[in-house]
């Protein structure tokens, strides 16, 4: 089999994940898109490990490690999302702007706060 097929599929899958991370507002959908990107990397690792015929099977073992780390990441990420939901009653990530670096404009501050709450 040509190795370029899985490589191209992995590249496109990664791009789909990039689009999802940038375009989605719901934090859980962003987590799903991160999973897509990790899976694209896994496909690359497996394909190139098979191509190289590594005797230590480093690519596939690293794939297993990435799967484990992705499971840990999604568990922690969901815990954080649930905590945010419990405190703010929303998981829309562009509504969470408390740490945003904005210029202090005292005249506009009350307006902005009121629009965010509504």
């Amino acid at each position: 089999m040509h190795i370029v097929y899985p490589a191209v599929v992995a590249a496109l899958l990664f791009s789909v994940g990039v689009y999802g991370v940038l375009a989605r507002r719901n934090a859980i959908l962003v987590l799903m898109s991160v999973e897509l990107m990790l899976n694209a990397v896994n496909l690359n690792l497996v394909a190139f490990d098979v191509w190289l015929g590594d005797a230590l099977r480093g690519g596939q073992v690293l794939t297993l490690f990435v799967i484990v780390i992705a499971a840990a990441e999604v568990g922690l990420g969901l815990a954080i999302v649930l905590l945010v939901f419990r405190n703010r009653q929303t998981v829309q990530i562009d509504a969470l702007r408390d740490l945003a670096d904005r210029d202090a404009e005292p005249a506009e501050r009350p307006e902005q706060v009121s629009t965010e709450i509504s």
Partner: peptide, 8 residues
Amino acid sequence: LGSAVLVV
């Protein structure tokens, strides 16, 4: 790819 596009 098709189902990934549907996910996002």
